[in-house]
């Protein structure tokens, strides 16, 4: 299976990660293969995996914000029931031009994922049905909340009122005030 996929993967310039070399710090499981592919090749590669590679089950479709590198990593997780094997297709797209080809023609439920990705990350999928309709966040005014630069804490402090009467003490600072205040005040 692996050889078969790898042979075709070359056509799509898809690079395996973590099989022989480690992805990040870990060695991947045998039945989980991460493949990195360029944005233009992604949908052709996924189509090939679905139609010919036997990876017909779209398990998960999501994005990860790597704001430091100014990219979104889009993750397509495909499963083959025949081989009990997963291929995770990773595509990096420009965060400033967050647009990706739609795959709703391959799996109808991908439209739901795409609707959610637009809402949560602001990634557009031209042609995807109901893309601009609210999914989970009806009436949401702010920026796409799953982006890393959306600060939930700042938002909640701005939006909600803290419960009055709460005060806490840091043990080290408190002990300084109690046990050696002289030194605390002068230096």
């Amino acid at each position: 299976m692996y050889e078969n996929v790898m042979k075709s993967a070359e056509r799509f310039k898809a690079r395996p990660l973590g099989r022989d070399q480690k992805i990040g710090g870990m060695k991947q499981r045998e039945d989980l293969l991460f493949m990195k592919v360029e944005q233009e090749q992604a949908v052709p590669f996924i189509t090939w995996l679905k139609e010919l590679g036997g990876f017909g089950h779209l398990v998960l479709f999501t994005a990860v914000d790597f704001i430091e590198q100014d990219i979104f990593q889009i993750t397509y997780l495909l499963h083959s029931y025949e081989q009990h094997h997963d291929i995770v297709v990773l595509v990096e797209i420009d965060r400033q031009k967050a647009e990706m080809e739609s795959i709703h023609h391959l799996w109808p439920h991908a439209a739901t994922y795409q609707q959610e990705l637009f809402e949560m990350f602001g990634i557009t999928f031209p042609g995807s049905p109901r893309l601009y309709e609210d999914f989970a966040l009806e009436g949401w005014q702010g920026p796409p909340p799953m982006r890393r630069d959306f600060d939930t804490k700042e938002y909640s402090e701005k939006t909600y009122f803290p419960r009055p009467g709460r005060v806490t003490h840091d043990p080290a600072t408190y002990m300084k005030e109690q046990l050696y205040p002289g030194e605390a005040q002068t230096w």
Binding site: V167, T168, H169, D170, Y174, Q178, L179
Partner: peptide, 13 residues
């Protein structure tokens, strides 16, 4: 929250 309850001494805030 950590609030003052006992007397502060060494080894006990």
């Amino acid at each position: 929250d950590m609030v003052p309850v006992k007397e502060t001494r060494h080894g006990d805030s």
